[in-house]
Simulated scan of single mutants.
Amino acid sequence: MAESYTAHVTSHAGRNGFVRTSDGKFDLKLGTAKEGDEEGTNPEQLFGAAYAACFHSALKSIAKSKKIDASHSQVTAHVTLHSEGKEYHLSVEMEVTVPDLEEAQVMELAEAAHQVCPYSKATRNNIEVKLKVGTPVPK
């Protein structure tokens, strides 16, 4: 298999440190996993951002191949960090919204995207990923 791209991201000091890409385009302070933490973003938010963007690209590609307009679609990744004693694991709810499509059509696109998205492939059988159809926000 040919390599298309390799990202180089280094963590310094773990969850309470920072992460930086080798090209310097990405340099973020990290904080603990709390909603609205003023110290910085956290790994769950970063994972959610990457997964949502990748999943959304897969969804738009599939929609285009089916001649479906998904130009105003959006994907929200709800990433949850679970703890069981000293053990931790993740789950994701992928919420997909495509204006002007029936719920069944949106779910069909989401399921197809889930089959081809590289993040979905990487997480398959490793973490629970649920697909959900979101409600379009009125324009």
Rank of each mutant, 00 (worst) to 15 (best):
Val96Arg: 15
Ala2Val: 02
Lys60Trp: 06
Asp69Met: 10
Thr6Pro: 06
Ala49Ile: 03
Glu111Phe: 02
His78Lys: 15
Gln74Met: 13
Asp69Lys: 11
Val129Thr: 12
Val137Ser: 11
Ser22Met: 04
Val79Asn: 10
Val19His: 03
Gly24Tyr: 08
Glu35Trp: 05
Asn125Ser: 10
Glu108Pro: 00
His56Glu: 13
Ala58Cys: 08
Ser61Glu: 13
Asp37Ala: 15
Gly134Pro: 01
Tyr88Leu: 13
Val75Gln: 13
Ala52Arg: 09
Val19Met: 08
Lys132Asp: 00
Leu81Cys: 07
Leu131Lys: 07
Ala49Phe: 06
Glu93Leu: 12
Leu46Trp: 06
Ala110Ser: 09
Gln74Gly: 14
Gln115Thr: 07
Ala13Met: 04
Lys132Phe: 00
Thr41Val: 11
Leu46Thr: 04
Val92Pro: 06
Thr41Gln: 11
Arg124Thr: 00
Leu30Lys: 02
Glu87Ile: 03
Cys117Tyr: 05
Lys121Glu: 02
Ser91Asn: 08
Ile62Ala: 12
Val96Lys: 13
Pro138Arg: 10
Ser83Lys: 14
Asn16Gln: 12
Glu38Phe: 00
Ser57Asn: 14
Phe55Val: 03
Ser65Asp: 10
Glu103Ser: 15
Ser57Val: 12
Pro118Asp: 06
Ala70Phe: 13
Pro118Leu: 08
Lys130Leu: 09
Asp23His: 08
Val116Glu: 01
Ser83Ala: 14
Lys34Leu: 14
Lys86Trp: 03
Ser22Trp: 01
Val75Arg: 13
Gln115Glu: 04
Phe55Thr: 02
Val98Ser: 09
Ser4Asn: 11
Gly14His: 12
Ala122His: 00
Glu111Gly: 05
Tyr88Ser: 10
His8Lys: 15
Glu39Leu: 12
Phe47Gly: 11
Ser4Leu: 15
Ala112Tyr: 00
Gly31Cys: 06
Pro99Arg: 07
Ile68Lys: 09
Ile68His: 07
Leu59Ala: 07
Leu101Asp: 02
Asp23Ile: 02
Pro136Asp: 04
Asp37Arg: 05
His82Pro: 01
Val75Thr: 15
Cys54Ala: 09
Val92Trp: 01
Glu44Met: 07
Lys121Ala: 04
Ile62Leu: 13
Gly24His: 08
Leu131Glu: 04
Val96Trp: 12
Glu93Val: 09
Lys66Ser: 02
Ala104Thr: 11
Thr80Gln: 10
Lys60Ser: 14
Lys132Leu: 13
His89Tyr: 15
Ser22Arg: 14
Gly24Leu: 10
Ala63Trp: 04
Leu28Met: 07
Val106His: 02
Gln45Cys: 09
Gln105Pro: 00
Val19Ile: 15
Ser65Val: 02
Met107Ala: 02
Val137His: 11
